[in-house]
């Protein structure tokens, strides 16, 4: 197991890290986007990553389920652990990893299929259900957990693309949780949504943390303050400060964090 570096000294009350970045460096071609980031994502809690555009917060998030693999010329150094195992290890199957670490994107991206088929997509490719009844059950439970069931129960065969933006994003959340991941990554999940849809998603995130570990990238500091228990502030590819959300927003240790959260730059 690689050395665990904690920026704040872990207190007994803090949940253990579910995932952890250790000295993570990311390069896009010759350009380095992330510098020695060490950051825990604690079990069954919400970790928010904030910072101005281009600060590396999304880059770090995409390391957690190796979505950077898709980007041509991207290179990751350091270690990302999931339950202590390095996900960049050669023996790790990226398909397995992504089944355990799900993701919700900035723009809702339902597949051009029915609502049912969207949610059933993951269980089907991973062979998680033995029969139709079981699959029906997974779809229903997932939609309920995503708070969408009541709105779509009578039209599961309608295309997912026909829903409103906020419903589409909840559909994407249902799709992600249908494979029972342990961690859910959210890359600015509300940036394309109106305030009401945003409030619903935020409420949902708070419920989901009972069962899942959540890492969320957000542009909105109010959102980070509302939904997260831990906050990491990134700037220019460096992790500037990490701590409990209350501490970061009320009593930041770093001057740059203070300046950012009070709106002096960003």
């Amino acid at each position: 197991m690689p050395t665990v570096l904690n920026i704040v000294s872990p207190m007994d009350a803090l949940p253990p890290p579910k995932m952890e970045g250790v000295d993570v460096k990311v390069f896009y071609g010759a350009k380095q986007a992330l510098f020695d980031v060490s950051l825990p994502v604690r079990n069954r809690s919400v970790t928010a990553m904030i910072g101005p555009s281009g600060c590396g917060k999304s880059t770090f998030l995409r390391c957690l389920n190796r979505m950077n693999d898709v980007i041509l010329g991207a290179r990751v150094e350091g270690a990302i652990t999931l339950d202590g195992q390095n996900v960049y290890d050669k023996t790790v199957d990226v398909v397995q990893l992504r089944a355990r670490v799900g993701m919700v994107f900035q723009k809702p991206n339902p597949f051009p299929k029915s609502i049912y088929d969207n949610v059933a997509y993951g269980p089907r490719i991973h062979g998680l259900s033995a029969n139709k009844a079981e699959l029906d059950g997974i779809v229903e439970t997932s939609l309920k957990k995503a708070g969408l069931w009541k709105e779509v129960a009578d039209r599961l065969d309608q295309p997912g693309t026909g829903l409103s933006g906020g419903q589409q994003q909840r559909l994407c959340i249902a799709r992600a949780i249908a494979v029972s991941p342990e961690v859910i990554l959210m890359d600015e999940p509300c940036s394309a949504l109106d305030p009401i849809a945003t409030a619903i998603i935020e409420e949902l995130i708070d419920e989901l943390r009972q069962n899942f570990t959540i890492a969320i990238v957000t542009h909105s500091m109010q959102q980070a303050a509302r939904v997260s228990q831990y906050t990491a502030f990134f700037h220019l590819g460096y992790l500037v400060e990490y701590g409990e959300t209350r501490q970061i927003f009320t009593n930041p240790k770093e001057a740059r964090t203070q300046a950012y959260i009070t709106g002096r730059f960003g």
């Binding site: 339902p110 997509y121 993951g122 490719i125 799709r175």
Partner: peptide, 23 residues
């Protein structure tokens, strides 16, 4: 964004091509 969505679900590239891109 659709390919990313599928890959992030743990689908392979072939599954993504046939089940998401082609439809």
């Amino acid at each position: 964004s659709l390919r990313d969505g599928s890959l992030a679900m743990g689908a392979t590239r072939l599954q993504t091509s046939i089940k998401v891109v082609v439809p």
